[in-house]
Simulated scan of single mutants.
Amino acid sequence: MVVFRAVAQQLSFRKAAEELYLTQPAVSLQIKALEEDLRVQLFDRTGSRVALTAAGKTLLNYGEQVNALLQQAEEEIAAMGGELAGQLALGASTTIAQYVLPRLLAEFLGQYPRVQLSLMSGNTERIVEAVVRHEIALGFIEGPSRSKDLREEPFLADELVLIVPAAHEWAEREHITTAELSSFPMLMRERGSGTRRVVEMALERHDVKPASLRIAMELDSTEAIKSAVDAGLGVGFVSKWAIAKDARTGTSFRIVDVNGLRVQRQFLMVFAAGLEPQGVVQEFRRFLMARAAMRDATEVRRRRGA
């Protein structure tokens, strides 16, 4: 069933093989053997396309139910001994996966070593899709999900700032105007990215149309934007979380204030609507919200003391 679920979720024998660290022929043989045992075809293999048949969809539905029951049993048995255990499947958009979650996950696993954690990374659209398809229990995204099938909870504040090369003519200025943003090559995240969506929405509120920007490159990660700025290929917006370490260690780019423009957002936690998280998932949710509240309180104290 493990191999079948992997192929059914990925709808790709190659991707399932990579996920399971098996060869593609080995995956194909196991699926063939399962189909022979059940005397039905589970996948429609038309050309390069793989799709579930009606029998395959039925088996996947029962397989997911069995997997959920096994996880519940593991959690309840662990709870009898006063421990928290079970599988925790998470997904996060790139910025959150790289810069926000690692320390939080390390702390959580330090408290609950029997939890088995997996973390998927992708842009906001990919993470939303994974939650809707129940591939992961919780998703963390950088912009609105736009899905009626999900519930959203803000868990951390963020701000996007404009960075330019250290030698750029804007680097020593106190601020620039929004109109000037169209005068230099702009580096943007790819379409489907929550970061791009938030930047475009903020600019449009200041009458800067995305079409007016000189978009030089579309890049699939914040690190790629930082490297491109460093190389002098343009200017771009990145999360403050993504440059916190750079600010401490020194960097070859500068943050430039755009007069009147504040690109603020909330990182969001998303999960399936109608399903209240339970067990390990609920405990991790509580853990994150408690850490977020502690950070907010620290920020308030810092501002009062400033």
Rank of each mutant, 00 (worst) to 15 (best):
A33H: 14
L11T: 12
R303Y: 09
T95I: 10
E152G: 06
R103P: 12
A130R: 07
L275A: 13
L162Y: 03
Y21Q: 10
Y112P: 08
R291T: 13
E190W: 03
Q266D: 14
F4P: 01
R191L: 11
K245Q: 12
R295S: 07
S252H: 12
R302G: 09
E169W: 15
A290Q: 11
T222Y: 06
S193C: 02
G91F: 04
E159K: 08
T53A: 06
S12I: 01
L22H: 01
V281A: 10
V161P: 04
V161R: 02
E174F: 12
K209N: 01
S28I: 15
K245W: 05
G143M: 06
L60I: 00
F13M: 14
F271G: 07
A216E: 13
I243T: 05
A73E: 02
P25I: 14
Q30F: 13
L160N: 01
M1I: 00
L42K: 05
R286V: 08
M269V: 08
V280I: 13
A157M: 02
D37M: 10
V281Q: 07
G56K: 07
R197I: 08
E75W: 04
Q10V: 00
W170K: 05
M294Q: 15
E152P: 02
T23I: 04
E64D: 15
E36H: 10
K240L: 03
Q264N: 13
Q10D: 05
